[in-house]
């Protein structure tokens, strides 16, 4: 009998590990990318803070705009001063929930498709968004990945007509967050 109890305990342990523990990351990365015939914009921010609360099925991000690293100084300056106004809006945030979150799904190693619903705030403008992504579970390590596009006009970011051929109206975001158990 004792043996069975310990076997059952072992089987359900991973579920509880995920449900009770919070997963956090301070070194996630988001790459922004846009390409037009005249110009490629490519910058990476490797200092994304993110948290998953397993018991609530919630996901949150804190993105410091000034941490996006460009190669060209002028492009970085324009990104911060003209488009994102990073002094006024130093961060972008996301707060949401996994829509199809079932704890049992994440007990085993594997890559799982997930959908997240929530509020995305960029440039001081908050929009409801639904995004798809994956959660990779490997030996207790969790990595979230997603790739989606953002229409800059939706967030009150104006692209002057003189640079319309250089700056695309939609920007691709590549998200990659390795989590640690808290």
């Amino acid at each position: 009998m004792k043996k069975y109890i310990s076997i059952i305990a072992l089987l359900i342990l991973p579920v509880f590990l995920f449900s009770q523990d919070k997963y956090i990351s301070r070194n996630g990365s988001i790459r922004i990318y846009s390409q037009t015939a005249a110009e490629t914009i490519d910058a990476t921010n490797g200092q994304i803070a993110s948290a998953i609360d397993g018991s609530k099925g919630t996901l949150a991000f804190d993105v410091i705009i000034k941490s996006f690293k460009f190669k060209k100084a002028l492009m970085e300056e324009h990104f911060n001063e003209n488009y994102m106004q990073s002094e006024k809006f130093p961060k972008s945030t996301f707060k949401g929930k996994f829509t199809d979150f079932d704890l049992k799904n994440f007990a085993k190693n594997g890559t799982y498709n997930v959908t997240v619903d929530g509020d995305l705030t960029i440039h001081g403008v908050t929009k409801k968004v639904t995004q798809k992504g994956t959660l990779e579970v490997k030996d207790g390590k969790v990595t979230a990945k997603s790739k989606f596009t953002v229409k800059v006009g939706d967030y009150g970011i104006e692209i002057p007509s003189v640079v319309k051929d250089k700056v695309a109206s939609t920007i691709e975001l590549q998200v990659n967050i390795p989590y640690d158990k808290k």
């Binding site: 200092q47 803070a49 991000f61 410091i64 000034k66 941490s67 945030t93």
Partner: peptide, 16 residues
């Protein structure tokens, strides 16, 4: 110095 995140504790971020 690029700023401070306040999602997980507080973290002042230095890059480069």
């Amino acid at each position: 110095c690029s700023g401070m995140q306040e999602l997980i504790g507080k973290e002042v971020i230095m890059i480069r």
